[in-house]
């Protein structure tokens, strides 16, 4: 297990949220959608042309941009 950014996960890969470097309202939005340290996330897919990621936390599916996903650290298998 090692820490990687959420944006660095491979499609279909899962891991556990280790740290969230997000601030302010973005952090609160993340938390209200179920992003918490210790929760399991899975990268479902990525849109074309460097578009957003679809990530599943628990039973919730969200989309977020790669640059925003980079602020979330994940424990994952290398």
């Amino acid at each position: 297990m090692s820490m990687v950014r959420l944006s660095e996960l491979a499609i279909g890969q899962q891991g556990i949220i280790g740290d969230m470097d997000a601030e302010g309202q973005f952090r609160q939005r993340l938390q209200s959608l179920g992003f918490r340290i210790g929760k399991e996330v899975r990268l479902i897919r990525q849109a074309l042309f460097g578009g957003p990621l679809q990530v599943r936390v628990g039973s919730v599916n969200v989309m977020l941009r790669r640059c925003d996903a980079a602020s979330i650290q994940i424990w994952a298998e290398r």
Binding site: N61, V62, D68
Partner: peptide, 8 residues
Amino acid sequence: EPLLIELP
């Protein structure tokens, strides 16, 4: 602005 939308 960070973008975060639920896909219900």
